[in-house]
Design a protein around this nucleic acid. Structure first.
Lengths: 243, 243
DNA sequence: GAGTGGTCTAGACCACTCA
DNA sequence: GAGTGGTCTAGACCACTCC
């Protein structure tokens, strides 16, 4: 490993700068699966930092599934091909980063009265107005997913944003709304006739489903989504870490 | 919140004791969604601990998606019905804890020569001997999933364990092998005729699929699984946290 | 016995939020 | 301006692994 370049005047925390450089080294192949890192104490001495700061950096990468630690032994790069972990982002971000040129087609955006099935996850009273957004996601010319989202009104005026270009999460970020936590459930079912038509699939074809409820950093529900994906074009990848 | 009972002679770390008691309070309803916790400094003073220790406890629950923090504001309980997050466990554990009396039927356990498709994820040479384990999981009398696992030989003698009663992960734990990290991919596809017969489904019915590679805390591949689930009986739940 | 990561202390300064 | 969480320091002792 090359020496680190730390910028103490940067607003980026030191532990994050360290973690970024290690992550890059792993992705680049400068650190290979099974390689041992230097000990936390040695690293702290070399970098002129305290051990807790170095430890915080390593912990970040352990949580991402890139490193494994063993007491009395040391810290090693995990023996796995590194792929991007599932993060709290939208499908739009996922595909943009994969360079696949996603497009979005708005099928409908309107204010409706919340039905009980929508009101409950959004934690509003039934009959209250909510945003209902339906979109078709395409990658190239292939339809990929049908996205259906419910949002509380009052948070943001969705019609003011270019949802086709920025995606929903990008628009929310621009409005100053940042997601903090999300719960999601992934399942499967047959395509309805309408979904099959939109996705160029046979009726009854298997679809991957995802339901997600997202919360801001005040713990309030921001968004509830029910999405269906073509399983030949999309799947969900997660890294699980024992804590 | 009631005062905490900390046991400094316990081998359980103090930060974990604190986190456990908060988690219990949230599950019990003594702490309700939106409730504010006391400040980290105040908590440290009351508990007679340093602030970093208290902070470590809170971080654990933030990572679990139970609490949200906001600088300049405070720490709150997230506005969500609390459900168990997806952890690094097996389906057997999942169902046991849900009180659903899972059963396992071993369809086959044998040593085979690794085919390339099996050798690659296990990181052994093609043709090397590996364990191949096929099981049918049932809940009550309903078939739930077909589980197919490949393991490196040499780690453990699978025939020495009662896989029907303990599950695979339980057997590995007994053999002193603990999982540290796992990567998994969830998708969907049609049932093959054989799978349909095992799962009491129609051929071509939609199935939920999961591929998982698990690593021990030396970063070595331990297990590679390809599983299919009946989507009416099982789905995958995850909590995503912005870091 | 030497070396590792796991836990913990008792402070410090800062950026941010809100009144 | 007061109070919050975010970051960072410079140590300490312990449990565990390996030789």
């Amino acid at each position: 490993m090359d020496p680190f370049a730390l910028d103490r005047s940067s607003p980026v925390p030191l532990y994050f700068q360290i973690a970024e450089q290690y992550e890059q080294a792993i992705v680049d192949g400068r650190l290979r699966p099974g390689d041992r890192l230097e000990t936390e104490v040695a690293l702290a001495r070399q970098l002129g930092l305290s051990r807790p700061t170095v430890r915080q950096a390593i912990q970040l990468l352990v949580d991402k599934g890139l490193l494994v630690r063993k007491r009395g032994v040391g810290t090693q790069v995990v023996h796995a091909q590194v792929r991007r972990a599932l993060e709290l982002t939208s499908l739009f971000d996922d595909l943009s980063r994969a360079g696949q040129a996603p497009r979005t087609q708005i099928l409908g955006l309107r204010r409706v009265s919340a039905e009980p099935a929508q009101a409950q996850p959004l934690q509003v009273a039934p009959g209250e107005p909510i945003w209902l957004l339906e979109r078709l996601r395409l990658v190239g010319d292939e339809p990929l997913a049908v996205l259906r989202n419910c949002l509380r009104t009052g948070l943001v005026d969705l019609e003011a944003f270019d949802l086709e270009r920025q995606g929903l999460y990008g628009s929310l970020r621009r409005a100053g709304i940042s997601m903090s936590v999300a719960r999601q459930r992934v399942g499967a079912r047959r395509a309805s006739p309408a979904e099959a038509a939109l996705l160029s699939e046979d009726p009854g074809a298997p679809l991957l489903t995802m339901e997600r409820t997202a919360y801001d950093n005040a713990g309030r529900v921001v968004e509830f989504g029910q999405h269906v994906y073509r399983p030949d074009l999309y799947s969900f990848e997660t890294t699980l870490v024992q804590r």
